[in-house]
């Protein structure tokens, strides 16, 4: 019994008296240590074919952890990829994606590595043999014009501007689609219906898992106009009779308005899109199950307050992806 108590007395000191290998707070060397380049900027290849799955690895090293930024600029398109990280090692594997539109093309790119609070810039170049290919079901990139099987309606208002854009600020390829005009008697300015039949299909070729399906498009909000609303509608053929019946089958919708000026990527998880009535969330009319595999038609309605005057937007590269949102 006595030995047991002595053992209990000594037990707490087992494995004591050591300093933790970790430490609290940021590394003092990062905050106050001298900065030096331990390894210059290197790229794993001079030219890269993203379309065939290649990537290019940029590496560099510093004497302490710093905020570093790699900027890659397409010298023809003006596309811009920016990668910011904090660390003492640079190991950025670029797969051809873009941060600021437009998307990259087959072109020479200038690469710059900068470090916060350091004056020097490290430079390199890389040539894109073929740009990145995005997997998914592409509704249109407007390079071949407007799909003739799409059905459009345009109000007879003033300064109506529905049509292809082929100059100026195009985020992908050479063409995009513009929608604009002034309609003083109605919110609707114009609309496009995109039925699955436009692709010779009864339903969109999507999986049944609504959490896995993303609707993506590039959208522009001109700096001059804040009054536009793009209403996206997704109509399902719940009973699979080859048509959509309003009032008895599901229609999910979302309004996109405001946001930053210029082009931006809009990515929507299909399961997150609600049923709306006059802009207010409501119960769906059909089986209330998000079923992208039964998607019958996508509609895009461009709206604006009739009293607000001219309004405009533009879209490009409309695509469904599965597994993750579009990484252009």
């Amino acid at each position: 019994m006595k030995k047991l108590w002595i053992l209990l007395l000594c037990l707490p000191f087992w494995n004591a008296c050591k300093v933790d290998p970790d430490f609290d707070g940021p590394d003092l060397n990062d905050l106050y240590g001298p900065f030096a380049l331990t390894e210059g900027l290197n790229s794993s290849r001079d030219s890269v074919d993203f379309a065939s799955g290649e990537s290019v690895l940029f590496t560099a090293g510093f004497s302490k952890r710093v905020d570093w930024t790699i900027g890659i600029k397409g010298l023809t398109s003006g596309a811009h990829k920016e990668q910011k990280e904090f660390g003492s090692l640079v190991a950025f594997d670029w797969k051809g994606e873009t941060t600021f539109f437009p998307m990259f093309r087959s072109e020479w790119c200038a690469v710059e590595l900068t470090v916060e609070n350091q004056p020097d810039t490290l430079r390199d170049t890389v040539y894109i043999v073929a740009p990145k290919v995005n997997n998914g079901f592409l509704l249109s990139d407007f390079e071949m014009g407007l799909n003739p099987s799409w059905q459009s309606f345009i109000q007879s208002g003033q300064n109506m501007n529905f049509g292809l854009l082929n100059s100026g600020d195009i985020p992908q390829g050479q063409r995009a689609y513009s929608m604009g005009g002034t309609v003083t008697w109605d919110w609707l300015i114009g609309m496009i219906d995109i039925p699955a039949s436009a692709y010779d299909l009864s339903h969109y070729p999507l999986s049944s898992n609504a959490n896995n399906v993303y609707f993506n498009m590039l959208m522009k909000k001109p700096a001059e106009y804040d009054n536009g609303v793009l209403l996206l509608r997704f109509m399902e053929d719940d009973n699979e009779d080859g048509s959509f019946t309003a009032g008895s089958e599901d229609m999910y919708a979302i309004e996109i308005k405001g946001g930053p000026d210029g082009w931006r990527l809009v990515s929507l998880k299909y399961n997150d899109i609600k049923s709306l009535v006059n802009g207010v969330e409501s119960a769906p009319d059909g089986n209330a199950i998000h079923e992208p595999n039964k998607l019958f038609q996508v509609s895009m309605l461009f709206l604006a307050n009739p009293a607000s005057g001219y309004s405009e937007t533009a879209i490009d590269y409309v695509i469904f992806t599965e597994g993750s949102p579009l990484a252009p």
Binding site: K18, V19, D22, F23, P26, L28, N29, L31
Partner: peptide, 12 residues
């Protein structure tokens, strides 16, 4: 005595 864990460094 000494620290059981360094602050900003492994040195206590």
């Amino acid at each position: 005595g000494q620290e059981t864990r360094g602050e900003g460094t492994q040195v206590a």
